[in-house]
Design a protein around this nucleic acid. Sequence first.
DNA 1: TTAAAACCTCAACCCAAGTTGAGGTAAAGC
DNA 2: GCTTTACCTCAACTTGGGTTGAGGTTTTAA
Lengths: 152, 152
Amino acid sequence: MADANWSVGKVAKRCGINISALHFYEQQGLIQSSRNTGNQRRYKPEVLRRISVIKAAQKVGVSLDEIKQAFESLPNNRTPTVEDWQQLSKNWQRMLDGRIAYLQTLRNNLSGCIGCGCLSMTSCPLYNPDDQLAELGSGPVLLDQAEENARL
Amino acid sequence: MADANWSVGKVAKRCGINISALHFYEQQGLIQSSRNTGNQRRYKPEVLRRISVIKAAQKVGVSLDEIKQAFESLPNNRTPTVEDWQQLSKNWQRMLDGRIAYLQTLRNNLSGCIGCGCLSMTSCPLYNPDDQLAELGSGPVLLDQAEENARL
DNA sequence: TTAAAACCTCAACCCAAGTTGAGGTAAAGC
DNA sequence: GCTTTACCTCAACTTGGGTTGAGGTTTTAA
């Protein structure tokens, strides 16, 4: 099998992304290339799988930074195996399960809460799905109950 | 009921957002204010509901631009009713249903596709959930079958 | 051999959704 | 009356995920 002999243009066309994105991914440490004698990038075929995984992960909402971290858990002394890749995907799958559940909660509260007008930072179920509590920091402040009642 | 007498600081504290965000929303046409004699913003209580809806919508992944469009369907000659707000939320709920279904598809393909290595732009089910096809434009290009087979 | 196509680097720019800061005015509390 | 707090505007900055363009080099095809 030919080793590192894919040019940027071929990889880009093959993966349906721009050359600039390949440069960018390399700069971010997500993929690697070697250079030919004329300083042009040459990729091993392995890069195609990496790019596929990057795109798949992005689709499910994983950031480049998280993808990079995940890639760092891959072995760097050998080409990753099927099991290596499956481990990655399992982590993202768990995360996706969580996000789907979260969206379902929001979905089920949305109409009720927007419609009924209960939308209160301090009591509306829409604002208090479990996993959001930490994110809020000190959070909204209840000024006083008269004001709370004055809500439209 | 007191009319437009909420200051920017009170609204911000009450809603758990920064004053700068209120300025920003106003600039983007999502909320309105009047001014007192000293040029300071004064809000009608209705603004609290709007901000709640903005935050709820953002949580489910609606952009400010889409929120603005939705707000434009509200009556501008009277305070929106419960039915008006429920109509908004129904549209977003439909959208959410679609997104949840989409994520579920991705979820169910993720491990299989990443693990098995089928990740091909042209044939992998992960890349071709229905609603993504349009988004791809001319899309990735199949160079030739020998290359396709050469995938790691 | 020469023109075109592909490639290189680096800096600047794009979008969304705000935040930060400077320099100045208004309102509130003692 | 004075000081502190709240507010004003405007411009510049931030992050993520890239794209665009200038100016120059390498590779490929006729």
